[in-house]
């Protein structure tokens, strides 16, 4: 294992941040404090963090409507995110984007994306920039089992191979596209095989196992940076929440989520691995848990107190210059 203690602590911190953030957004949304609708990432933390632990602020990710976890994994400011989700003026996008459009370009986070299959072509573009400008960066597309059915994703996979780009396609199979199961909606049992069919190496890993994701991503990053082109990684991890908060989830068996929480909790799996191996003390992780809890509490307090954008912001930011 190549991760240092500090890196392991950081990985855990990010996963915990995602978990606490999403659990709290669920509460705040249910209490009517958040406009619109939100899609939560809890249960899939090891996927986003295992991928992004290989990336710096210079590398790019494109995300989905279920993007909070990717933002946090990529290092976006939690308070700025919370303000954005609350639709407040100080949010990462000034309250103009909301949950489904959080972006932080300074962190290489090219945006959550409310269009399924929307980001893979964009990430091809980010990888093209890296190649043409010779920056040595990589660009990562997160999409889901649902996105793997979209033509845009197919086009992006092919184009990345044809142009030999430093792009990595992470397809997070969380079991459902909205309220329809993977077994019904995806015509193959082998989503990775789809990517492989376009001519790139593709692998499937347990998305609740941080280390499995991390190891697969290392290979993909090495390959991209060596100029050998794109790769695909399918991570399998079910979401804890519904498609959106308020989803009655009638399409799921009654005990599915409780079993997931008991048996497939990425944080618990990580905690057991590192404490059993003697890499980290449980007390260290407990301490992190408290810090993250306080951090999220502070973010919610700030978001609740912050003002909404003033109406004079309605027509700004459409163009850089107009006419």
């Amino acid at each position: 294992m190549q991760l240092t203690r500090e890196e392991l602590l950081e990985a855990y911190r990010r996963m915990k941040r995602i978990r606490e953030f999403e659990e709290r957004v669920n509460v705040e949304f249910s209490n009517g404090n958040i406009p619109g609708f939100v899609h939560l990432y809890a249960g899939q933390e090891a996927s986003g963090v295992g991928i992004c632990m290989h990336l710096t602020d210079d590398d790019y990710i494109g995300s989905t409507h279920r993007g909070h976890g990717h933002c946090i994994a990529k290092g976006c400011d939690v308070e700025g995110m919370m303000l954005e989700i609350f639709g407040k003026a100080g949010g990462l996008c000034g309250g103009k984007g909301g949950s489904m459009h959080i972006a932080d370009l300074d962190k290489g986070m090219l945006g959550a994306n409310a269009i399924v299959g929307g980001n893979p072509p964009l990430v091809v573009g980010a990888a093209l920039s890296a190649k043409v400008n010779k920056t040595g960066r990589v660009a990562v597309s997160f999409t889901g089992d649902g996105g793997s059915n979209q033509g845009t994703t197919f086009e992006a996979l092919n184009m990345a191979v044809v142009l030999n780009l430093p792009a990595i396609f992470v397809i997070e199979n969380n079991g459902y596209g909205e309220g329809t199961g993977v077994d019904y909606a995806v015509g193959t049992k082998d989503i990775a095989g789809r990517a492989a069919g376009f001519g790139m190496p593709a692998t499937t890993v347990d998305g609740t196992d941080f280390f499995a994701v991390y190891d697969a991503m290392r290979e993909a990053v090495d390959r991209a940076k060596a100029g050998n082109g794109p790769s695909a990684i399918v991570t399998e991890a079910m979401r804890y929440f519904g498609h959106f908060v308020g989803d009655p989830e009638i399409y799921r068996a009654k005990d599915e989520v409780s079993k997931l929480r008991d048996e497939k909790d990425p944080l618990a799996i990580f905690r057991n691995r590192v404490t059993e191996a003697g890499l980290l003390e449980a007390s260290q992780l407990d301490q992190l848990d408290r810090e993250v809890l306080a951090e999220v509490e502070k973010a919610v307090e700030a978001a609740s107190a912050a003002p909404f954008p003033s109406v004079d912001q309605l027509e700004t930011d459409v163009y850089v210059t107009y006419p």
Partner: peptide
């Protein structure tokens, strides 16, 4: 998409 993504990066 590649053009749009490249333009932001």
């Amino acid at each position: 998409g590649a053009a749009a993504g490249a333009a932001t990066t």
